[in-house]
Design a protein around this nucleic acid. Structure first.
Lengths: 340, 340
DNA sequence: AATGGCATCCAAAGCGCTTTCAATTATGTA
DNA sequence: TACATAATTGAAAGCGCTTTGGATGCCATT
């Protein structure tokens, strides 16, 4: 069933039917009713491809999903997607997901943009001096970046959390508890949030005249295993750190295993603060020793970005170009006074 | 830059350029080279919407993502998606994800199908007598179901794991270890895999003249919390079960917490076997007491389904309509002889 | 009765591509 | 030399929708 058939069925022109469907004012209310009724009976749905070709609008937002044969899937991605979805479903938007090798991101993003399949782009996993940024700017398609790109002029639309502030505050809390030997388990070096979190830790330490030694810093994929490995390394250091900052509850999982295996007690021998993206799977309050965390919901961020993106496409009201969300510092049992 | 402009630039007709681009044999090799060169220089990309409108092919596979404001995101979904992506990227396919309220799945699926946005559908979270099945059959669009629909004629294309066999084998192992009091922590009742797993347990028990009492069976969302709650209930039973079958490592997480909190030891007081979807986040071998599991990779299933779907769309070779994967039973430390 | 304004509706063009059908030129064969 | 055949290219139709630029008829005004 297409527009032509439907209009013939109704004895109307395609024009009128189309207008009735799209809420144009110049069609008689009685006619509109008749059209709507017929739609209900026939189950007619406009062909999206045709609609897109005619209007240029697709009703969809595009994103690139990093993937490769060995590439671990990322819980954070799924959670973010859930946030996007929650908002998108309310506006009848959908997503076009282009899987791409992480090395091919810039090209994949460009392909997606000029494919005509999407109205707007969402970009994540930002790096320092991210090469996608200049590309996006040249594209004349709305986009919102999740995170920021360290070193780049902040003149692009983004939503980010205050990573530096979060880790600064967390570090200060540990300092106040008397800790002096710190370690940081961070995400991959090139990622923007990792850079900022490191800076947060370093600047809080600097205020007390402390520094973060190279061997007390780990940059790795934010997985369980890497958490375990990093913590094992820390624990073997001659001057064992007593205060650990950790970029993810996923890593914390492994880290805590290492602590237990070493026969140490979390919250007593070792204090740990992790960043919590509010993953349904990993509730910090459910850990055997509940985790002190800096918290910011990834899902909420997804929903907000979807809102901004869809709003921009539909031209409903202006949105702030840049948003920086504060995180919450929630103290639980994994932090305690420095052991004497 | 569109086809027309490109062809004018080259002094050729749109026809020839289009043919050159799509690998038709009737175009002179020299001309084809010239066209390809121009494409490289101008960065021309065909408009997908137009291509789709003309051919009816979209190069994309569609899926519905269940979502709602309160709806928990599901790790399993993300993992499956990773599998799909891994395969899709090789064929330059993408996904169209339509977020939809779980109550609206049938309608959402139909909308997706007739939107003209996708070439094939992927359907998951199958239920007994699933209402989407008759709808899909009426659609004349390729699809593959992940799982099966209990009670429906198995005449549709699916990929499933042998849930019944997996839980039958797991139960038998526990029986051999001398257990007689069993409990099952399952997914929601209406889901197909939950039905089959329950049947697997029941039939293994029946061989020994045992039954699975109602209060030793829990059907709930496969989350951490639900695992905890269910296990707490089991442990308070007058005749406490000593052998637990669990439908997910996610649930097992909570269940194990409950066991620990009750001061019991896993693998001694309580034996537990969980089904492992091979989530990167939850490695059964990394649990404090490594978990005995029935294993089947969700990601591999995703990749295989993508392969079948894409193959069907591209008409490359026939694929088996139905596949039933065996699971592996991997014995680790969470199972032991029944306490005397 | 003539005029203008309004409410409705429609024909046709156009979005950017593919594909059918036909035309043109080159090649080989009788 | 004439003709069938193959190789190469093009004109134009069509995919299903939106939207521009009229039409048409009806009513109130002058």
């Amino acid at each position: 069933m297409n527009l032509k058939q439907l209009s013939e069925l109704l004895g109307l022109s395609q024009t009128t039917v189309s207008r009735a469907l799209n809420g144009y004012p110049e069609v008689n209310e009685a006619t509109r009713e008749r059209v709507l009724q017929a739609v209900k009976e026939t189950g007619y749905r406009p062909n999206k491809a045709a609609q897109r070709l005619a209007t240029g609008k697709a009703g969809s937002i595009g994103l690139v999903m990093p993937t490769a044969p060995g590439h671990q899937s990322d819980v954070h991605f799924g959670e973010f997607l859930a946030g996007l979805g929650e908002e998108a479903v309310r506006h009848d938007f959908h997503f076009v997901i282009m899987p791409a090798d992480p090395d091919d991101e810039v090209a994949a993003l460009r392909r997606l943009a000029i494919s005509g399949n999407v109205d707007a782009l969402f970009v994540a996993y930002m790096r320092g001096h991210d090469p996608r940024l200049p590309m996006l700017k040249s594209l004349s398609m709305p986009y919102v970046v999740h995170g920021r790109s360290f070193g780049a002029e902040p003149d692009y639309p983004y939503l980010d959390i205050d990573n530096e502030g979060a880790f600064y505050d967390a570090t200060r809390l540990l300092l106040q508890l008397g800790h002096t030997r710190f370690a940081l388990m961070n995400g991959p070096t090139h990622l923007d949030f990792a850079i900022r979190r490191r800076n947060g830790v370093i600047s809080a330490l600097a205020e007390r005249g402390l520094t973060l030694e190279e061997d007390c810093m780990s940059h790795a994929l934010m997985t369980d295993e890497q958490g375990l490995l990093a913590m094992e390394r820390f624990l073997q250091l001659p001057q064992r750190p007593t205060a650990i900052l950790c970029s993810s509850t996923v890593m914390a999982l492994g880290a805590i295993r290492a602590v237990n295996q070493a026969g140490l007690r979390l919250g007593e021998d070792i204090s740990l603060i992790a960043h919590d993206d509010v993953l349904p799977l990993l509730k910090p309050e459910s850990f055997s020793v509940p985790l002190t965390t800096t918290r910011s919901s990834l899902r909420a961020a997804g929903a907000r970005i979807a809102q901004r993106l869809i709003g921009t496409v539909k031209q409903t009201g202006p949105f702030p170009e840049q948003e920086l969300w504060k995180t919450e510092l929630i103290v639980r049992a994994s932090t305690g006074p420095a052991p004497s």
